[in-house]
Amino acid sequence: MLKYIGRRLLYMLLSLFLIITATFFLMRAAPGGPFSGEKQLPPEIEKNLNEFYGLDRPWYEQYFDYLISIAQWDFGPSFKYKGQTVNDLINNGFPVSFFLGMEALFIAVGLGILLGIIAALNHNKWQDYGAMVFAVMGISVPSFIMASFLQYVLAIKLGLFPVARWESFMHSVLPALALATTPMAFIARLTRSSMLEVLSNDYIRTAKAKGLSKFQITVRHTIRNALLPVVSYLGPLSAQILTGSFVIEKIFGIPGLGSHFVLSISNRDYTTIMGVTVFYGIILLSAMLLVDIAYGLIDPRIKLAGGKKGE
């Protein structure tokens, strides 16, 4: 197990290196730069700025310098937010996005699995149709419409929650709901179809023949086996949700990490682009590793050691 995790960490480093390299060169290949704007800067100032940030040096020097500083967890200063480093941006934004994301994940996974199970156990009855209509709506309605809808109904009309801003737990409920809707609907559909498949298995008939009740069969024999597809979806999903959403954070005025992904690119804020991309890569790769470990725990037939030497 430890050996497996060690090997996986090594692969993660390799993937990260590839991500960094690809982003670095793609970013440089895009036209424009951090200081090109509508108002042309005087050439002397631009030259000074480039010199200050090291942008006048040959690309390979910049590249290797960057690799070295990233290895020391130093993403450099932001070009756009004066006086702040990219580390500051991440340290300030990520806790907010993470908290909101965890809340949304919790809602999406809990409600999604519950809905899926109810639908599967009442296959082709009204509960099933009801849950699936709900799910299709959740998948098709974009999050910004869901967000405005929630703001209008729950905040403005009913006054249950604050409309926007990031101050207390109550402020986080609406954005979390809006963020959770689509993944929840997706998880519900995934759980339902996977439950239905498991329920048609011979070992479910064996469990019935043992005299177990419907509840015991569902809890002990069905859910666990039906959750594998949900768990594998959870990897990329959690990376995406935990690092924040541009749309939701803009609508609710939340100081999260999500907006940096979009704004840094249009700003050509090189260090921020690199920083958030690398950060996202790390979160995604760790989520995948966790998913693979969870897989091995759920299904004993999956051996984490790679199956060569056994345990």
């Binding site: 298995n201 070992y203 008939r205 023949a209 005299g211 177990l212 666990r224 086996n225 004993p300």
Partner: peptide, 19 residues
């Protein structure tokens, strides 16, 4: 079921819960 009447099925490969 299971107490008074027990049952064995055809395919032992699929009749036991793999997890």
């Amino acid at each position: 079921r299971g107490r008074d009447i027990g049952m064995i099925f055809q395919d032992p490969m699929t009749s036991l819960n793999p997890t």
